[in-house]
Each structure stands twice: as structure tokens, then as C-alpha cells.
């Protein structure tokens, strides 16, 4: 398996606070990696730094072979190769669900409207929201909105999908439908890096797990191993608190 995304020694400070303190990770094609760790451990910041939504202070990020942390790289073009799903969905309230899904294809990737809509409709059909295509997002439930947001993120066939605690804002009974969709994408071979608090889901779907605390990777390993027999005391403590 070849590496799609390679980050080495990422540092990031907000004012006085060091949020990332030399984080490295590698993501192979078709691999699903979960980032776990307490709030404030740097998971969200790490995800935002990887697709250049936040500039890093130091370190190197390779997307495929390309060094995207090089200041000469155009960040918009890099971001277009990632798909991101946020905790609060962040759908565009003034656009229909279908327009939300097709916006990037049309505006960033120059796909003709008809083609983009055909594909967008197919994707919405797949998640059972075809009848909501012309509705605005506020007519959808939280779970439907988040699934629409996932479809928006994958509509442009991104090389890497970044999921930032996508079930944290959902009512418990809506979490399942969203996780099922992610499970499907993983089974279809998507490359996914996800920050999550759903330990059972991470154990079930992720190939590897990274435990972050205080801006560093405390421990990493295959999901089954890390959850069954964590090596570090801090990991054990965290997992004990989460269960």
C-alpha cells in the first residue's frame, strides 16, 4: 500500500498554546485511521492543518508525492483534493441539498451542471435522500443533514476524507445512520482519517488508531491491539474513562 498522506513533525501554536507538538502520521490508500484522545488534544487542529485550512508553524505534509506544506503550493487546489465533514455539518443554508452537493464539482472542478447534478442525484439516491434534493438543508433532520454533508464531501472523489467528530452534535438515535454511511464508504475503499469519540465504531471500522494527548501521538497501533491491550498508561486511563 502506498502512502496517500504523510505528515512529519507538525507543530502548531495558537498564541501561547502549543496545540500540535511534533505530530507525524501516515495514511495509506484505502486505509481508515481513527484519531482518538481527550478534547483539546489537537485532533481537530491536526485535521485542519492537513488540508491547509490552518497554516502549520513547522513540519512537512506530503499528499501523494507532492509537498503541500511548500509555501508555493496553492492551498485552494490542495483543499479541493480533500473531502471534509464537520461536527456541525456546515451545510449551506441558502442552497438546496443538491446544490450543496454539486457546488464544488461545478465551481471548483469545472464539471457541467447537468453532469454534476446527475452524479449528485445518484449519491443522494444512495443515501435515501433523493426526495430531499430540492429542499433546503433546514428541512432535514440532523442525521440527514450530516449524511448530506458526507455526500457533499465525497462528490468530488477526494483522495482523502477527513471526518471531524461528525457524530458529536447528533442526537444519539441519529448517530447510527451516519456511522453506517461511513462504514459503507470504508468498505468501498475510501481513504479516511477521522477524529472520533465513538470508540466502538473506531475499533470496528478503523484499521489503525492514533491516541493523541497534549499535541503528541502518545500511542498508535492496529485498532484491535490498541483497544485490547494499550501499552501506555495515559491510553489506558483515557479508554477506561470512555467506556
Amino acid at each position: 500500500m502506498s502512502a496517500v498522506l504523510t505528515a512529519s513533525e507538525l507543530w502548531k501554536t495558537f498564541g501561547e498554546k502549543e496545540v500540535l507538538r511534533g505530530i507525524s502520521l501516515e495514511l495509506a490508500t484505502h486505509e481508515v485511521v481513527a484519531l482518538i484522545g481527550p478534547s483539546g488534544s489537537g485532533k481537530s487542529t491536526l485535521l485542519r492543518c492537513l488540508n491547509l485550512l490552518e497554516p502549520i508553524d513547522d513540519g512537512r505534509i506530503l499528499l501523494g508525492e507532492e509537498d503541500i506544506s511548500d509555501p508555493r503550493v496553492k492551498p485552494d487546489a490542495v483543499r479541493a483534493r480533500f473531502g471534509v465533514v464537520f461536527q456541525h455539518y456546515n451545510l449551506f443554508p441558502h442552497l438546496s441539498v443538491l446544490d450543496n452537493v454539486t457546488l464544488a464539482s461545478r465551481v471548483v472542478h469545472g464539471v457541467a451542471r447537468a453532469t454534476a447534478e446527475e452524479r449528485g442525484t445518484r449519491l443522494l439516491e444512495r443515501i435515501g435522500l433523493a426526495d430531499k434534493a430540492r429542499e433546503h438543508p433546514d428541512r432535514l433532520s440532523g442525521g440527514q443533514q450530516q449524511r448530506a454533508a458526507i455526500v457533499r464531501a465525497i462528490a468530488t472523489d477526494p483522495e482523502v476524507l477527513l471526518l471531524d467528530e461528525i457524530t458529536s452534535a447528533l442526537d444519539p438515535e441519529l448517530v447510527g445512520e451516519v456511522l453506517d454511511l461511513v462504514r459503507e464508504l470504508a468498505a468501498d475503499g475510501a481513504t479516511i482519517l477521522m477524529a472520533t469519540h465513538e470508540m466502538a465504531f473506531a475499533r470496528d471500522v478503523a484499521h489503525r488508531v492514533l491516541f493523541l494527548d497534549g499535541g503528541v501521538v502518545v500511542e498508535e497501533g492496529p485498532a484491535a491491539e490498541l483497544f485490547a491491550a494499550p501499552r501506555e498508561a495515559r491510553t489506558r486511563e483515557f479508554l477506561a474513562r470512555m467506556s
Partner: peptide, 12 residues
């Protein structure tokens, strides 16, 4: 967060 979502999609 609306800007963030748009920039994440690659919009300038």
C-alpha cells in the same frame, strides 16, 4: 463555519 466549509471544498 460557512467560510470554513466553502474553503474546505476548495473554493477561493
Amino acid at each position: 463555519s460557512q467560510r470554513l466549509a466553502a474553503r474546505a471544498l476548495g473554493l477561493g
